[in-house]
């Protein structure tokens, strides 16, 4: 095992240990997270949609389950679970779409298990989790009809998107829907910043579970994430200072 592999394993062990520790002591020292307007506005928008009998749509993007771009969609599925709980009392429960068939199946499983858990099995329909199109643009091209016919008033994009993500947001805006969007691609984040009502930048997308009160472990994992970021920033600063000192000595 090389030194890099060893460091990698130690970092993963640190993450797992940190999550367990924070999940255990989290109740004693509860975390205070900075307010994220996107998530608070999302909860308000969902409440309005439920009252008005409108639909909430969650898009898991065009990334595949077996690709390296599945993490944002997995974070999106965490949000789906929470949104399904809130909208289960509505006449129009949440509808989830994906560009990858396996991701659509995971969305169906997530919805089914969530509705079973809260004794609302009647809210589940196999059509609630759908694949819209297998390529990025075929997926995007199918969105306007879905948003229009399903009476969508809350449009959440939590998944991997390329440049087409901006179009996906824009189609929601044209219908007057509240749009919350986040992705892993930096260039697409810039486009989403310009188009979405509430853009999620960087790690904000992955904090959805913690902010929507999904599970104490989500809050614990967010604290570990913040701690790790501080350590990395410290290491970068220390490296920069040492490099500068080395250059001038």
């Amino acid at each position: 095992m090389s030194l890099v592999d060893l460091v990698g394993m130690l970092v993963l062990a640190f993450f797992i240990g940190g999550i367990i520790v924070y999940a255990t002591v989290g109740r004693r020292w509860p975390a205070v997270f900075r307010p994220l307007r996107g998530y608070s506005d999302l909860e308000d928008a969902i409440e309005r949609a439920v009252e008005a009998g409108d639909r909430v749509h969650v898009s898991l993007g065009t990334g595949s389950v077996i690709g390296s771009d599945c993490a944002p969609a997995l974070a999106g599925l965490t949000m789906v679970s929470r949104i399904a709980e809130i909208t289960s009392v509505s006449d129009r429960p949440v509808v989830v779409t994906a560009g990858d068939a396996a991701m659509a199946l995971l969305a169906q499983d997530t919805l089914r298990s969530t509705y079973d858990r809260i004794n609302a099995s009647e809210a589940y329909s196999p059509n609630s989790g759908r694949m819209l199109g297998p390529t990025p643009f075929s997926y995007i091209a199918s969105l306007p009809v879905l948003i229009d016919t399903e009476k969508v008033s809350v449009h959440v994009l939590a998944g991997s998107f390329g440049y087409e993500g901006a179009l996906a947001v824009d189609f929601g805006n044209r219908q007057g829907a509240f749009s919350l969007a986040g992705t892993d691609n930096v260039q697409s984040q810039a486009l989403i910043y310009a188009t979405a009502d509430e853009p999620l930048i960087g790690e904000e997308l992955f904090a959805g579970g913690a902010y929507l009160n999904q599970h104490p472990v989500h809050r614990a994992s967010l604290r570990v994430q913040d701690l790790m970021r501080m350590i990395i920033i410290g290491a970068i600063l220390a490296g920069t200072i040492l490099r500068v000192l080395g250059t001038f000595s």
Binding site: I19, A71, L74, T78, R112, E203, V217
Partner: peptide
């Protein structure tokens, strides 16, 4: 900076699935 946040978020999301906290495959 943004990529650093995305990478940390992706790692934590993957670990939550690995630890069965998030179960996208259903219950």
């Amino acid at each position: 900076g943004i990529l650093l946040g995305v990478a940390l978020g992706a790692i934590v999301t993957g670990l939550r699935v690995l630890l069965a906290v998030d179960r996208p495959y259903g219950d």
